[in-house]
């Protein structure tokens, strides 16, 4: 990933925030619409949660050698 890629992604994120606080400011279909940038936070938190939970399960319970069942 080059710096330019990060900048493009950053701009895209800022645009979505812009829409969220202008066009969608009055939008209220779920309780979480009141939380600013909820979906961004949700994405990041869930990503961390999935990786760490998966890692924990893998390490402690399910990971075995290739020839485990042989």
């Amino acid at each position: 990933m080059k710096t330019i890629h990060w900048i493009i992604l950053g701009i895209l994120f800022v645009i979505t925030l812009g829409f969220e606080f202008t066009v969608l400011a009055g939008y209220d279909s779920h309780w979480w619409n009141a939380i600013p940038a909820f979906y961004a936070l949700f994405g990041l938190v869930c990503c961390y949660a999935i990786v760490y939970v998966a890692k924990f399960i893998a390490k402690n319970i399910v990971n075995r050698d290739f020839n485990y069942y042989d």
Binding site: A40, G43, C46, Y68
Partner: peptide, 26 residues
């Protein structure tokens, strides 16, 4: 777009934790 972008960021920060290993999962 928000979910995807921040998930991408999360992946980039955590990708080493998902690196290939010679294992199977039960």
């Amino acid at each position: 777009i928000q979910i995807s972008l921040l998930t991408f960021l999360g992946f980039w920060l955590l990708k080493k934790k998902m690196a290939p290993e010679p294992i199977i999962a039960l």
